[in-house]
Design a protein around this nucleic acid. Structure first.
Length: 421
RNA sequence: GGGAAAGUGGCCGAGUGGCUGAAGGCGGCACCCUGCUAAGGUGUUAUACGGGCAACUGUAUCGAGGGUUCAAAUCCCUCCUUUUCCGCCA
């Protein structure tokens, strides 16, 4: 959520930044509502003040045994006016809030400007895609042949785009999860969190999935509960509505969860294999930090995610998303892409974003600032560290051998208990 | 799932219709005092949204939302949460 005061102060600037994103975005309507709202609030406050004073006076008069009927009638009429104004006030407040919740974050000044992914900027490339002397198979063929994933039966017991890991496939998936967690916890200083995977609408609103992206999520119809699309949602919201100690910041949190996405509108894309499923595993990194530190923390978080690929010896690159491609809540975002031979391309495996105070304002996560003595919003960040299913696919494809077997990356072997599949 | 009790400021805790944004205590902060590793004294100490160049000022907030009333922390209704008894269960 953007700061209404900033919008009021410099509407042109905000509009200009929003225009860098795709679509027609403007805060003009919000400004109008806000102006009306303040006018009504002022009027209502005046009347409430009157009522308060006169009511007190009635109390005093009654104690003296005086008749107060005509004054009571007067206040009753003021009360009716207040009720009327309050209804208007509430409507305007809700309208303004709803509009604000639908406005995406303003991109950071450093975010490259562009309308779609063609304007994304490659930042770096690490590792060389291996050139092998045999025909490489896509991971879905490898996984099926080696009985690691049962795509058909996953669909049978659920729906299309759900899959079922088996045997060494399941072990490998679990090994990857544990490797990621141990690395981030023991070497990068994150605290492990194992959160609920069903969360309420307040949490979903806090991180920005609601109200705009309701159609992308699985909802439990009988309850105010949604399956999380990412651990970002429960973990970022842990400290919602709280005031944190400045000394306790930054918070580094790391969380494995399954993730659930309807991915409405993605039909036809990545239809085979493990790349785009309705349920997948992910280890997520989340940080809450001081505003002045968020840029630095963003770089560090991205390096933490990249380190997983370096240790797994998987070739990757980092790109910076342009203004037309960054997510709704983000002001700056790096994607990490892993080399996938079946795609003959790099494929997104992590997305590391700095949200500034956008989510903190929605979720009301603040800290007591020593400098100002006031409560200020923290900055929030997160990034995948990493998507597990895509890592699984990348390992199968990049580590396949000519005889059809798959070598397990060295760092994973102590987690799998085997060196080859 | 059923019954009972409870939800007040950073914490503890008073407060059953008006003078309560809220006593008192703890904690925090500031200053004062005292020659002794600490104690004492005084003051101060919530948040949000408005108005004002500013000093300052208005309103709201006692779990949430409604209602009654001239007036609600206080009365009524609904919901949520916590504790507890029963049931069920991993």
């Amino acid at each position: 959520m953007l700061d209404i005061r900033l919008i009021r102060e410099d509407k042109e600037k905000i509009n200009e930044l929003l225009k860098r994103r795709n679509g027609e975005l403007s805060v003009d309507e919000i400004i109008e509502i806000d102006t009306q709202r303040r006018k009504i609030q002022f009027e209502a406050d005046e009347f409430r003040s009157q009522r308060k004073n006169i009511s007190q006076e009635i109390g005093n008069l009654k104690k003296q045994g005086q008749n107060t009927d005509h004054i009571q009638e007067e206040v009753r009429q003021i009360g009716e006016k207040i009720k009327e104004l309050e209804e208007h006030e509430v409507t305007l407040e809700e309208t303004q809030k709803n509009l604000l919740l639908m406005i995406p974050n303003t991109p950071d000044e450093s975010t490259p400007v562009g309308s779609d992914e063609t304007s994304n900027v490659e930042i770096k490339r690490v590792g060389e895609p291996v050139k092998v002397g045999f025909a490489q198979k896509p991971h879905w063929d490898i996984a099926a042949e080696r009985n690691l994933v049962d795509f058909e039966r996953g669909v049978k017991i659920s729906q299309s785009r759900f899959s079922l890991y088996k045997g060494k496939g399941a072990t490998l998936e679990r090994a990857i999860i544990n490797f990621f967690l141990d690395l981030h916890i023991n070497e990068h200083g994150y605290e492990e969190i194992l959160p609920p995977v069903l969360v309420n609408s307040a949490a979903m609103t806090g991180t920005g999935q609601l109200p705009k992206f309701a159609q992308d999520m699985y909802k439990c119809e009988d309850d105010d509960l949604y399956l999380i699309p990412t651990a970002e949602v429960p973990v970022t919201n842990i400290y919602a509505e709280e005031i944190l100690n400045e000394d306790d910041l930054p918070y580094y949190m790391c969380s494995y969860t399954p993730c659930f996405r309807k991915e409405a509108g993605s039909a036809g894309k990545d239809t085979r294999g493990l790349i785009r499923l309705h349920q997948f595993n992910k280890v997520e990194l989340v940080k809450l930090c001081l505003p002045e530190k968020s840029q630095e923390e963003h770089e560090k978080l991205t390096l933490n995610a990249e380190r997983t690929l370096e240790l797994l010896e998987l070739p990757y690159r980092r790109i910076e998303l342009c203004t037309g491609d960054i997510g709704f809540s983000a002001r700056k975002c790096y994607d990490i892409e892993v080399w996938l031979p079946s795609y003959d391309a790099y494929k997104e495996i992590s997305s590391c974003s700095n949200f500034g105070d956008f989510q903190a304002r929605r979720a009301n996560i603040r800290y007591k600032s020593k400098a100002t003595g006031k409560n200020e919003f923290v900055h929030t960040l997160n990034g995948s560290g990493l998507a597990v299913g895509r890592t699984f696919a990348a390992i199968l494809e990049n580590f396949q051998q000519e005889d059809g077997s798959i070598l397990i990356p060295k760092v994973l072997q102590k987690y799998t208990g085997f060196e080859r599949i």
